[in-house]
Computed example of a mutant assay.
Amino acid sequence: MDHAAEQGSLLLRDQLCFALYAASRSVTARYRPLLEELELTYPQYLVMLVLWDQQTASVRELGAALQLESSTLSPLLKRLEAGGLILRQRRVDDERSVTVSLTEAGTDLREKAHAVPLAIGEAMGLTPEQDATAKHLLRLLTANVNRT
């Protein structure tokens, strides 16, 4: 632990939370023009990433993967469905459960989206090792904070 953290520094430059906040805002802002071309918001893009990987997921599974409550996820899914990218259906065997699947348009959008991670990776300017380390540390931080 560095000396500033040990002393309970109140300097902005010593706050990890601010470094995370500033980085998050910068990265999300860099996504905006790329996602506008796909007619997606950043949260909608995250939903689509899960569905491009899994094809189909329940609302509960999407919420777990994205760490979102269903009250936050439901409006995103409504907009994606209105845009013709997904289809929501209640399960026949459990009407409380809603399954989300890609439409043909949602599947086709995946091809256009391949440019997004490449552009973001280039903008970040990290080596593959730095990228892996950053992801590892952020996942560890998230797990530690959620555990306490």
Score class of each variant (00 low, 15 high):
M1N: 09
A4C: 06
A4H: 11
A5G: 00
A5P: 00
E6V: 07
G8A: 08
S9Y: 07
S9N: 02
L10C: 11
L12K: 12
D14K: 01
D14Q: 04
L16K: 03
L16V: 10
F18E: 11
L20N: 09
A22P: 01
A23G: 08
A23W: 10
S24V: 00
S24R: 13
R25P: 01
T28V: 15
R30H: 15
R32A: 14
L34D: 01
L34G: 04
L35E: 06
L35T: 00
L35F: 01
L38S: 03
L38W: 03
L40K: 06
T41W: 05
T41Q: 09
P43Q: 10
P43I: 08
L46Q: 15
V47C: 11
V50N: 02
L51E: 01
W52F: 05
Q55I: 08
T56A: 13
S58D: 10
V59W: 00
R60K: 13
R60G: 06
G63R: 02
A65E: 05
A65Q: 09
L66T: 05
L66E: 00
L68D: 02
S70Q: 14
S70P: 15
T72K: 13
L73F: 01
L73S: 04
L73D: 00
L73K: 04
P75D: 07
P75Q: 09
L76D: 06
L77Y: 04
K78H: 10
L80G: 06
E81G: 05
E81H: 01
G83A: 12
Q89R: 15
R90D: 07
R91H: 07
V92R: 12
D93R: 10
D94N: 14
R96L: 13
S97K: 08
V98I: 12
V100Q: 05
E104P: 00
A105Y: 02
G106F: 03
L109F: 00
E111W: 10
E111H: 09
A113E: 03
A113Q: 03
V116R: 06
P117C: 02
P117L: 05
I120R: 06
A123E: 05
M124T: 03
P128S: 04
E129W: 08
D131K: 11
D131W: 13
A132R: 14
T133W: 13
K135V: 15
L137E: 08
L137F: 09
L138K: 02
L140Y: 10
L140P: 00
T142D: 12
A143C: 05
A143N: 07
N144Q: 12
T148F: 15
